[in-house]
């Protein structure tokens, strides 16, 4: 019996899930509201056998003014994974930490704090993870424009003198080819006319 298929009725009976999306045989997504995510997670861990926290991801839906957090769990048999998703406001809303349940959550939450600026309540140390002395907008937020940042802080080496603009060059070559084809066609036509004359 498929673990995820049998989990669906149990989970939907017990909690008010917004959606249970069975994506593949080995992957399902449960979308809940933020206020019940801890309870759902406890149920998944203690009763349903999803004992491993694989990763935490965050997606920035800037046009809907929300972050979607995805906690991905693996079943103890390792035969299927489950994504537990809920949304938080983009600014000022914090999430409870998972470091009390899984030690690996410490570094994942640090990563998300650095990249998105999400605050995790009760996290022992939200120090920087990959960046050093970063005072700008957290880089993975959609409003952070990496190209503008690069143009502001770096200048690029100029190309070679004989470098050409690729678009202009392609246009020129196309025009050249067209003119050549036209000339050929005309020559052929004339030749054809000559042949006819003879």
């Amino acid at each position: 019996m498929n673990i995820l298929a049998s989990l669906q009725p149990q989970l939907c009976d017990k909690f008010e899930t917004q959606a249970f999306d069975l994506k593949r045989d080995d992957l399902a997504q449960v979308i809940v509201e933020k206020k019940i995510w801890r309870a759902v997670m406890d149920y998944l861990k203690e009763e349903a056998g999803f004992v491993t926290l694989l990763t935490i991801t965050c997606t920035d839906w800037i046009e809907e003014e929300r972050f979607e957090l995805n906690y991905i769990f693996a079943h103890e048999t390792k035969r299927c994974d489950l994504m537990l998703s809920f949304s938080i406001a983009r600014d000022g809303e914090s999430v409870q930490t998972l470091t009390d349940r899984w030690p690996q959550a410490e570094v994942m939450e640090r990563d998300l704090h650095e990249m998105f600026g999400i605050v995790f309540e009760g996290h022992p140390n939200l120090a920087s993870f990959a960046l050093e002395n970063w005072h700008h907008t957290p880089p993975l937020r959609r409003e952070f424009d990496t190209l503008a940042f690069v143009n502001e802080h770096f200048e690029f080496r100029k190309g070679r003198e004989e470098n050409v603009d690729v678009k202009a060059e392609a246009k020129r070559l196309r025009a050249l080819k067209k003119a050549k084809a036209q000339a050929e066609a005309e020559a052929k036509k004339e030749k054809g006319a000559d042949d006819a004359d003879e």
Binding site: A130, L131, H136, P139, F144, T146, L147, F149, V150, F154, E155, F156, R157
Partner: peptide, 16 residues
Amino acid sequence: TINGGMYWDSYNTIKQ
């Protein structure tokens, strides 16, 4: 190392 290469628009690597 010459001009940023693949990561020309990355916010965390130097270009030259």
